[in-house]
Each structure stands twice: as C-alpha cells, then as structure tokens.
Design a binder for these strands. Structure first.
Length: 207
DNA sequence: CTCGCGATCTACT
DNA sequence: GTAGATCGCGAGC
C-alpha cells in the first residue's frame, strides 16, 4: 500500500500567541526518524514571565527562542535530559511550547529499546523521556520543524480535537500561578496525573 | 501509591 | 558556587 507522507504544520501555525499554540498542539503528531507519537501534554513559556529561559533576554543560550517560529528549541535540563520545544510567535519574541508527553504511535519497538522500558505508558510520559524515546539530542536545536529531522504534523485524519485540561506548569518555582499546562483530558500518557478530583482509579482495565 | 535523593552539566550570579 | 522547564530508584506507608 502507498505510503502517504503527511504534511508538517506550516511555520505560520506557530506565529501567534504561544498559549494558543500550546493548546493547538495537543493531538498533533511529532515524528523523528521512524518513531512518532501524539502530543498529549504541552506547556507555554513566554519572555514576559520568569519561568521562561527568554526572560533574561537574548543570550547565546536563548538565541533560538528569539528566532523565527517553527523551529525546535532543544536544551539540556538537569545536566542529563534534552527537552524539546517549538519556537512560537514572531521573530524577536522569546516564546516556545515545551512538549511534555506523547502517546506512542509508530516505532514503539525502537522507543522501547532506547528507553530500556517495556510499558508503553513509560516511554514518552515526560519531556526528558520523549526525547530519549525519539532519539532527539541537543544537535537538533534550531532545526526546522517543517523540513528538518523533527516534524510536527496535524491531528490524524478523523480524530476530533482532544478535550483540554489546563493547570499549573510542572517543575518550576516562579510564575507558578499561570495555568499554562495543557493535557488531553482522557490520556493515560501524561507525565503526571492531575491532583484531586480528576484522578481516576488506576486499577488495571484493558484500556 | 508517595516521598526523598543522587546523577550530571550549563548558564548565570 | 548554585539552581534548574528531570528521571529513576529505593524506602516507607
């Protein structure tokens, strides 16, 4: 059967307020090599608030953030992990969406090998995990998300927009009041469960 | 299940 | 010198 190459999201998709992009990216597909996954969790970061790397202004480290939209911003976190972001808003604005979790879609075997885990829920349920699962490293920083090795594609045909749940961002100490984390409400692949009421029994049922 | 800690590196103070 | 957009392990409940 013929392979259909899906079109990547255009740069214009990213050239709007970063929070809008963070919401719109949930349900889209990230592809790197033969591995791909559906985005189930994102966070927005903007130069106007101190949790964002771009808050300090233009430096060698943050240059990608201030560059044109539609590129990857990949940086090292806690000395170990490579975290994947999509640069947003017009050139000159420091803003990006952190991709925090995926539902594995293609190349699951390879992801599993790279992660050293079997359970699909543990392959991409965190920003450092998904980079490792897809084989994304720091060398991908500033690469195009349209024509580069990493591509982000629209939602799969026929799939409705996921129901979104917004909440505070994870793992930061400043600007914690902003509800700029967005998850697919029904997904079991998110990096951390929501506190309190939304939590459901995790006792195993087939799906 | 939750909590606490070590690993390991870069940018900035 | 230190904090950080994290992860995985082990201990304890």
């Amino acid at each position: 059967m013929p392979e259909v190459v899906r079109e990547a999201l255009p740069a214009a998709f990213y050239a709007r307020p970063v929070v809008d992009v963070a919401r719109a990216l949930v349900g889209c597909v990230v592809r790197h090599g033969s591995s791909a996954g559906v985005i189930v969790e994102t966070e927005a970061y903007h130069q106007s608030e101190p949790a964002c790397h771009a808050y300090v202004g233009l430096t060698a480290r943050t240059a990608t953030l201030f560059g044109p939209p539609g590129r990857a911003y990949v940086y090292r976190s806690y000395g170990i992990h490579a975290l994947l972001n999509a640069v947003c808003e017009e050139e000159g604005n420091g803003a990006a969406v952190l991709i925090r979790a995926l539902a594995p879609l293609e190349g699951v075997e390879l992801m599993s090998r790279r992660r050293g885990r079997e359970r699909v829920e543990e392959l991409c349920s965190g920003p450092g995990k998904l980079s490792q699962a897809l084989g994304i490293g720091l060398e991908r920083n500033a690469s195009s998300l349209q024509t580069g090795p990493i591509r982000i594609e629209p939602r799969l045909d026929g799939t409705p927009p996921p129901s979104l749940v917004a909440g505070p961002r994870v793992g930061i100490t400043r600007a914690v009041e902003l509800p700029w984390r967005f998850c697919a409400g029904e997904s079991r692949f998110v990096s951390r469960p929501w506190p309190g009421t939304l939590r459901r029994s995790t006792r195993s049922r087939g799906s």
